[in-house]
Computed example of a mutant assay.
Amino acid sequence: MGDELKRRVYGTDHDDPDPGPKPDHAYQELVGGPLDGLLVDVTGWSSEDLAEGAALITELGRFGPGGRAVYEPRLGDRRMWDWQGDVP
Results as ranks from 00 to 15, higher is better:
39 L>F: 04
39 L>A: 06
39 L>D: 02
39 L>T: 01
39 L>I: 07
40 V>C: 03
40 V>W: 00
40 V>H: 01
40 V>Y: 01
40 V>R: 03
40 V>A: 05
41 D>S: 01
41 D>W: 06
41 D>T: 02
41 D>A: 12
42 V>E: 00
42 V>I: 15
42 V>S: 01
42 V>A: 02
44 G>A: 08
44 G>W: 07
44 G>C: 09
44 G>L: 13
44 G>N: 09
44 G>R: 08
45 W>F: 12
45 W>V: 06
45 W>S: 01
45 W>C: 04
45 W>E: 05
45 W>T: 04
46 S>W: 04
46 S>H: 10
46 S>P: 09
47 S>Y: 04
47 S>L: 05
48 E>A: 13
48 E>K: 13
49 D>T: 07
49 D>E: 11
50 L>F: 05
50 L>N: 04
51 A>N: 13
51 A>C: 05
52 E>N: 13
52 E>W: 01
52 E>R: 14
53 G>C: 05
54 A>F: 03
54 A>V: 06
54 A>W: 05
54 A>C: 07
55 A>M: 12
55 A>C: 11
55 A>G: 09
56 L>D: 02
57 I>N: 03
57 I>L: 10
57 I>T: 09
57 I>D: 02
58 T>I: 10
58 T>F: 06
58 T>Q: 04
59 E>D: 14
59 E>Y: 09
59 E>C: 09
59 E>R: 12
59 E>N: 15
60 L>P: 00
60 L>S: 13
60 L>T: 04
60 L>R: 14
61 G>M: 12
62 R>E: 14
62 R>S: 02
62 R>Y: 12
63 F>G: 07
63 F>Q: 06
63 F>T: 00
64 G>H: 10
64 G>W: 09
65 P>A: 08
66 G>E: 08
66 G>F: 11
66 G>P: 07
66 G>Q: 06
66 G>K: 12
67 G>T: 04
67 G>V: 09
68 R>M: 09
68 R>V: 15
68 R>A: 08
69 A>I: 13
69 A>S: 15
70 V>L: 11
70 V>S: 00
71 Y>F: 13
72 E>R: 15
72 E>F: 00
72 E>Y: 00
73 P>F: 06
73 P>N: 07
73 P>D: 10
73 P>M: 08
74 R>W: 05
74 R>N: 09
75 L>C: 05
75 L>T: 11
75 L>G: 11
75 L>R: 15
76 G>Q: 03
77 D>N: 15
77 D>F: 14
77 D>Q: 12
77 D>Y: 10
77 D>S: 14
77 D>T: 00
78 R>L: 15
78 R>P: 12
79 R>G: 07
79 R>F: 08
79 R>M: 04
79 R>L: 08
80 M>R: 15
80 M>W: 10
80 M>A: 14
80 M>Y: 11
82 D>L: 15
82 D>W: 10
82 D>R: 13
83 W>Y: 15
83 W>P: 03
84 Q>V: 03
84 Q>M: 12
84 Q>C: 11
84 Q>I: 02
84 Q>G: 11
84 Q>K: 13
84 Q>P: 06
85 G>W: 13
86 D>G: 12
87 V>I: 12
